[in-house]
């Protein structure tokens, strides 16, 4: 069993990376000869990054990081936008909710269930619901206008520039409860005596949270970061359910790009996969080092 799992994971990954350097068009039988014959170096990657659908940054040379997103379009920048925003918003919102939940409130279990409930639903289901809610013809905008608020406008889902933010809203709605649950577990794990000591020391609660409790929660925070970011890197179903990459291709993401190019453009699809793999590795490796490197030191 272990061997099969290992084989599929490791061999599949190596296979993907190796063939992203070749010009193959159909799924090949692996032979070293075939690989050497088809070897094209970084040509697939060069072509990939020259494809507007993957990434297009007309003015990348003279702009800062701040408005990078507004200039770059394509699947990869969309993913980065989604990742950055969902980690920033879901983590801060999740922490805020967890702190509120930690104030010994009544019916905590009920609130926890409500917040965690979206996480139990499939992205495809909630994606469709969000598509309705945000649709200008049927959703929020239409309802508000029927109620008489004629100037109300919420058409992000149909706006090329804003559509990714609409998807971020749905993603946060889905993921914040889970972040909150993890954060709450982290907060509950803090020794109660720490709180008592900080009260005796006269430290205000907010400072205790920021300067003492949050640094103590580092392992939980890193785990949350890894889970949320890796979720963002492989985002697929939410986008397909809400916009299917539209309007046009303005909300395309790497997973969808790979899937759509798989038959027609295998080499490029593989190199796109490798880019995702690298992105995932960037997220995972520091975490693995932190989680498992610690034990060998101790």
């Amino acid at each position: 069993m272990m061997l099969i799992v290992l084989g599929v994971f490791v061999c599949g990954t190596i296979w993907t990376v190796l063939f992203s350097f070749t010009n193959i068009k159909i799924l090949p039988i692996f032979t070293p000869k075939e690989w050497i014959d088809g070897f094209v170096g970084l040509a697939n990657y060069r072509r990939l990054f020259n494809t507007d659908r993957w990434m297009s940054c007309p003015a990348i040379t003279h702009i800062g990081m701040a408005d990078w997103r507004f200039t770059c379009t394509g699947a990869l920048p969309n993913m980065v936008t989604y990742a950055v925003l969902s980690i920033a918003i879901a983590v801060s919102l999740g922490f805020l909710l967890a702190v509120l939940m930690d104030q010994k409130i009544r019916a905590e279990g009920v609130f926890r269930t409500i917040y965690l409930y979206p996480f139990a639903l499939s992205f495809v289901v909630t994606g469709h619901v969000w598509a309705w809610i945000m649709s200008p013809e049927y959703g929020l905008q239409a309802s508000m206008r029927q109620l008489g608020w004629d100037s109300f406008s919420f058409g992000w889902i149909a706006d090329r520039k804003m559509v990714m933010y609409a998807i971020v809203i749905a993603g946060i709605w889905q993921g914040t409860g889970f972040v909150m649950a993890l954060m709450l577990a982290g907060l509950r794990g803090i020794d109660e005596d720490i709180w008592k000591a900080s009260k005796v020391d006269g430290i205000p609660a907010w400072r205790t949270y920021i300067q003492i409790v949050i640094p103590m929660m580092k392992p939980v925070l890193v785990t949350i970061f890894v889970i949320v970011t890796s979720g963002a890197v492989r985002i697929y179903d939410l986008v397909v359910a809400i916009t299917d990459g539209g309007p046009g291709i303005s909300s395309d993401v790497p997973s969808r790009y790979i899937y759509q190019n798989f038959s027609a453009n295998l080499g490029q699809s593989l190199s796109a996969s490798t880019v995702m793999l690298v992105a995932m590795a960037i997220v995972l490796i520091p975490w693995i080092r932190m989680e498992f490197g610690k034990k060998s030191q101790a």
Binding site: D191, D193, K196, A197, D201, R207, Q211
Partner: peptide, 27 residues
């Protein structure tokens, strides 16, 4: 009053000096 706890309840990411002086700085 000053209080000492069974689990020590030191602030783990601060140095000993930081632990001793944090409350005084806040005050």
């Amino acid at each position: 009053i000053g209080m000492v706890f069974q689990s020590y309840a030191l602030y783990p990411q601060m140095t000993v000096r930081g632990n001793l002086s944090f409350g005084l700085k806040i005050a």
